[in-house]
């Protein structure tokens, strides 16, 4: 791993929440929201993190920003350890990682004019003076497709799509190396989604910023990401380059997920892989593989221990945590010999 090339390196990240006990006699339980996740993102790259509600992808994003304190694990941003630092040092590091939130309506302070919201970001980091800050803000507004007159408007005067642009402007204004996009288009209409996605790509082309794109929308992730990671119940279960993941999904969950995505084409009405049951409660995690309760390929060993995250298909970039997939891989390889 060349740490000068990786904008983000996450190693063995864990985030546990203590569960609220109903009575003092109940055993202390933890909710393992994120359990032993490792990933890395290169400069100028978009890493798509997908999974359904409760898989921990948003929590992971927030831990990376230290909006939640990770329970253990390492986070390196541009080669510097982000986990242990505090105070002024942490504030300086924050210039490198920013976030765009899902909710366009609540992510902006309703009592502040948007120009002031953006200027404040600069003021917090003592960048420039009153005059230069104003110019920087005007520049950024135009970069995200807004007009300079919008400087003095309040958030409620803008539409959802425009507010996301403002959120993006706020994330960009400190010139970060990595932006965590937490479901940035999920709350928007389809045609506005397209605008924002195009904008994100254009900005990436211009500034070589990296994105951690968190979403549950497979079509969007396929369009925008270079690599994709699939999470389930706090674990990273598969990771590959986008083409490879969509063409050769190996983990049963990934396969079920992809089969459930409906293409907008009435001629392609297909049966999707039905998963039995529901995602188990995080208080009641299965021993062994986290997907074992619903997996159509579940075997005895799946119930006994957790599979490791290993490479597959002969590619270092394609990793899966699944005994079945590993077996399938060995069969394929032995057939080819």
């Amino acid at each position: 791993m060349q740490s000068n090339e990786n904008v983000l390196e996450v190693q063995g990240l864990q985030k546990y929440f203590p569960a609220v006990r109903r009575s003092p006699s109940q055993k202390k339980q933890v909710i393992k929201a994120v359990d032993n996740v490792s990933l890395s993102i290169k400069k100028g790259e978009t890493y798509g993190l997908v999974g359904e509600s409760g898989c921990g992808k948003s929590t992971l994003g927030r831990c990376i920003l230290r909006l939640e304190e990770p329970s253990s694990g390492a986070i390196n941003i541009c080669g510097l350890d982000f986990t242990k630092i505090k105070g002024d040092e942490m504030r300086k590091m924050r210039r490198n990682v920013q976030i765009v939130f899902q909710d366009p309506f609540l992510s902006l302070d309703p009592k502040q004019r948007i120009g002031n919201i953006l200027e404040e970001a600069l003021a917090i980091h003592n960048i420039g003076n009153a005059q230069s800050r104003f110019e920087i803000v005007i520049n950024i507004l135009e970069k995200v497709g807004l007009r300079s007159e919008h400087f003095y408007r309040y958030p409620h005067e803008f539409s959802g799509g425009q507010r996301q642009r403002i959120g993006l402007a706020r994330a960009l204004i400190l010139e970060p190396k990595l932006i965590i996009c937490d479901e940035p288009v999920s709350a928007l209409d389809v045609s506005v989604q397209a605008q924002i996605i195009n904008l994100l790509e254009k900005i990436q082309k211009d500034t070589r910023v990296s994105y951690l794109f968190i979403t549950h929308n497979m079509s969007v992730v396929k369009h925008i990401s270079k690599r994709v990671g699939v999470m389930y119940l706090g674990h990273l279960v598969e990771e590959a380059e986008t083409e490879e993941l969509f063409n050769n999904p190996r983990h049963p969950y990934t396969r079920a997920l992809l089969s459930a995505v409906a293409p907008p084409n009435p001629h392609l009405r297909k049966k999707h892989i039905a998963l039995k049951g529901e995602m188990p409660s995080p208080l009641d995690m299965p021993t062994g593989c986290v997907f074992s309760t619903r997996c159509p390929r579940c075997q005895a060993e799946c119930l006994a221990k957790r599979p490791e995250f290993l490479q597959i298909n002969g590619l270092a970039s394609h990793k899966v945590a699944c005994f079945y997939a590993a077996k399938e891989d060995r069969n394929v390889n032995s057939n080819n010999d």
Binding site: G161, V190, S191, V192, I197, M218, K222, H223, P264
Partner: peptide, 24 residues
């Protein structure tokens, strides 16, 4: 036409840019 084209289609080749209906 615009609505259908602005959806990233998982089954298709990835276009350079998503189609956008101009205006709001």
């Amino acid at each position: 036409k615009g609505l259908i084209r602005s959806i990233p289609n998982i089954a298709n080749e990835r276009p350079e840019e998503l189609f956008v209906i101009k205006g709001t």
